[in-house]
Design a protein around this nucleic acid. Structure first.
Lengths: 241, 241
DNA sequence: GTCTATACATAGATAGAC
DNA sequence: GTCTATCTATGTATAGAC
């Protein structure tokens, strides 16, 4: 199954990581373009292929620098150097460093929402649903590993709405896993007596370790497909009848 | 078993979290005192009950502030206010902000080493060893939750030796778990065909979630004993014969 | 041993030339 | 639309009084 346009929206392919990676590229470009539209009242430069490209470069440069030294410690001088735009030009794409953060978070959140919600649609059994959801999470966090790491590490500095939205996202992922397991119990696919909250929480910890310790898994040559399967097996082994 | 003095060194009690908490208090005081001695060439104030107490207050204040806004963003003015010592006085306890970081890391590392190494001594079977190790880790990370969180979140900003030591500590914990499992396989206590590296890695992710998501488990009323048992059960269920 | 006042560097953001 | 030069605030660290 290749990425195909359906009802004016792309669908993601979860067969294996390579097919996923191909199917997601168009979706991500689409998301940056929409990001530009959603923030047109903040961006002084008018939309063009060039300026959308610039915004993308700014976002990725900001994430890369922040992952080394933290967002607070990233100076505009450095962002200017890495993104190849002057400080003055940068401020034409966002009004303040705080607003740039919002744009970065919107970019990641939209992408993740899209993939995770689609992962739940096409499975029939709870076993499949769980496996697909785990795969979807590992795969999108592999493609967007820099953003996932960024968001995880910077959340504690966020304030107000931005903080709440990130925590909401965290808890949503967890409750989606919990729902899959509770549905499975209800339909006699999984055993009784499971502490569903705790298992969902631990499942999420496994998913997060993938992008938090990227260097480790990369060094050991573990593939996204292997890691997803192993996580699924450990969990399934514990909850199966 | 209460904390008792043996060969001039305390031993830790892993029966349950409450007994552990009592047995660890003296050990931690001991460690701060030794920390003072080990850094006497950096500390201009001469050792006294008062100055050791001040050092302890500085360390805990620095960790508390950093956990809210990050170590880099913590100003000396703020550390001065929270620790109730003037900026000038602070610099009598450490020569620079960088050196203070080393002192904080030494404090945590010594404590963790002490507890984890002792946890391995008094068990006979691999099953017990695994359960004891998990308990030890959850218990010490509960007592020192602020330091664990601090160390985890700040590691990426560390440089040189400090960075290497922290990563070494990470990998040591993981390889201790791996060793326990591999020993269990060798003595036919656990089944064949386990990917020991991956399981050890996932086990560690579970242990870390306890202090990384402290607010969540606290809000849900999960006790350290419960969490330790659940982690052990999930793992044991997967590796048992 | 601890204090206050200050030196010096670097941050985010803006003004005005082109 | 993008540049360079500069304003103002805040950071770490130190000097010298007590």
């Amino acid at each position: 199954m290749k990425a195909e346009k359906l009802d004016n929206t792309y669908i993601v392919d979860l067969q294996n990581y390579n097919t996923f990676k191909k199917s997601i590229r168009f979706i991500l470009d689409d998301i940056v373009s929409r990001l530009y539209d959603d923030n047109r009242q903040l961006i002084r430069v008018k939309k063009s292929p060039q300026s959308v490209e610039n915004l993308k470069r700014i976002i990725h440069a900001a994430i890369a620098i922040s992952n080394k030294k933290g967002y607070a410690a990233m100076s505009m001088r450095e962002l200017s150097a890495v993104s190849s735009l002057s400080i003055g030009a940068l401020y034409a794409y966002f009004p303040s460093k705080d607003e740039l953060l919002h744009i970065i978070q919107q970019y990641g959140r939209s992408s993740v929402e899209k993939v995770l919600s689609e992962s739940l649609i096409y499975s029939s059994t709870s076993k499949d649903k769980l496996h697909n959801f785990i795969r979807a999470h590992i795969f999108i966090s592999e493609v967007l590993k820099d953003w996932f790491y960024f968001s995880y590490m910077e959340t504690r500095y966020f304030t107000g709405t931005e903080y709440n939205k990130t925590i909401e996202g965290e808890l949503l992922t967890e409750s989606l896993i919990k729902d899959i397991i509770e549905n499975g119990i209800e339909y006699n696919e999984f055993r009784q007596g499971i502490q569903t909250s705790l298992i969902a929480s631990i499942a999420k910890a496994m998913l997060q370790d993938w992008y938090l310790k990227r260097w480790k898994y990369s060094k050991r040559g573990v593939t996204p497909d292997e890691y997803a399967t192993e996580c699924f097996q450990i969990l399934y082994n514990y909850i199966k009848i």
